[in-house]
Amino acid sequence: MKQRSTTPVSSKGIVTRSALVAAAVLMGATTPLMLAGRAFADQYDEQIKQLQSESDNYKQQASALGVLAGNLQAELDKLTAQKTELQRQISQSQAKRDKLDQDIVSTKKKIADTKDALGDIVADMYVDDSISPLEMLASSNNIGDYVDKQEYRSSMQESLSNTIKQINKLKTQLEKQKKDVENVIKDQEAQKQSLAAKEAEQAKLVEETKGQESAYQALVSQRSGEIESLRAQQAAAMAAAARRYNINIGSGSASGGGYPSVWANAEQDTIVDSWGLYNRECVSYAAWKVASTGRFVPHFGGAGNANQWPSTTARYGIANGSTPKAGSVAIQYVGVYGHAMYVEAVNGDGTITVSDYNNNSDGLGWGRYHHYSRSAAGLTYIYF
């Protein structure tokens, strides 16, 4: 939560001999401004708080959608990778099928060539069959030659039978392998179509989710613009109020009082300091100022609005009261969040000299440093 204070600062007390008269005059001079300042604070702070809440919600929605879009994109990438791998397998299967087609063609040619060769062998055997055994014996050079012819005839008959069986078996195997490969290709194509459908659906989800994320980001940008506009209006109203009631504490600066440059030079409310407070806020400056003197300042952890400081610090045994003391932190209960100031000195005229951040009474904008004197009355002081 932002620890923003929109408290205008009262004019320096008028030194008179009568403390009672001085207090009465000071109260009469400052009361209209405090009331007007509080009205301005409530009027704008509540609107800013509401817009900031909406902006934070939109940021959360955009962030969640961004994560979802990332997860959906990862799933889409997986589907695309699976489809690519499946296409590679299909290409391999198609290459295998083409090779089988070539093998089948080659085998058929081999069958044709073998049949031609076997035709010649059959013809020779037919010629040999037309010769009687006596004539074959008579034509043989000897008994051994006759026996060789008989064995050759028997061998060729067996070879013919085996060759035909082997070729037909090979052809059957090749055709079965081709059919199996075609079935595999068919299944792979079906899987590819299914993956393609899932991929298209996933891509649509990614696109829709990213579109929703962009819409929320646009809303965040819109709310940021509205907040800046309200802050500008608030600053102008506070400056007008300061002029109307003749308040002049001098021009503040973006950095001052020794406040660390890493926080002072950054855009307001963009860095959380060592005590859980946003930079260039009144509470961040006050916490740093106390800590810079070597004193303990607790981590506020979400309970660091100025008007929460007395109760928050009390839990750590840090006392508070209504008596101003140099080195204490003065808390003014005003607006939504209150305002914190570091007490530099306690003056004899009923005023205190303070330094602070983010009161905008000079009308130059929020998140600036000031050093001035003001009434000590009506404040709660925390004694670190």
Score class of each variant (00 low, 15 high):
298 P>Q: 10
265 N>H: 11
291 A>C: 04
287 A>Y: 02
271 I>S: 03
276 G>R: 03
264 A>N: 04
257 G>E: 07
265 N>R: 07
267 E>G: 14
295 R>N: 15
280 R>L: 14
287 A>K: 00
299 H>S: 14
285 Y>K: 01
297 V>R: 01
263 W>T: 00
269 D>K: 01
262 V>D: 13
257 G>Q: 05
265 N>M: 14
274 S>N: 13
274 S>V: 04
276 G>S: 09
263 W>S: 05
277 L>Q: 01
270 T>A: 13
293 T>D: 12
296 F>P: 00
279 N>Y: 07
262 V>W: 09
259 Y>L: 08
285 Y>T: 03
283 V>Q: 01
257 G>P: 04
287 A>V: 07
293 T>M: 15
272 V>C: 00
285 Y>N: 03
260 P>T: 04
267 E>D: 15
294 G>Q: 10
275 W>F: 11
271 I>Q: 10
257 G>L: 09
274 S>Y: 04
284 S>Q: 01
263 W>R: 00
278 Y>R: 02
297 V>Y: 02
279 N>M: 10
268 Q>K: 11
256 G>D: 05
264 A>I: 04
285 Y>H: 05
261 S>Q: 12
283 V>P: 00
262 V>I: 14
263 W>C: 08
259 Y>A: 09
292 S>L: 14
266 A>G: 08
263 W>Q: 08
286 A>M: 13
284 S>V: 07
295 R>A: 15
281 E>V: 09
272 V>I: 13
256 G>Y: 03
257 G>N: 07
293 T>I: 14
287 A>Q: 01
286 A>N: 12
298 P>D: 12
282 C>M: 08
257 G>C: 08
258 G>N: 06
280 R>P: 07
287 A>F: 10
264 A>T: 04
291 A>M: 05
283 V>A: 10
279 N>K: 03
298 P>I: 13
295 R>K: 14
286 A>Y: 06
256 G>A: 06
293 T>N: 11
276 G>A: 08
295 R>F: 13
291 A>Q: 01
283 V>D: 00
294 G>T: 12
256 G>H: 04
287 A>R: 00
256 G>M: 05
288 W>V: 04
260 P>H: 05
274 S>P: 07
291 A>K: 01
278 Y>F: 13
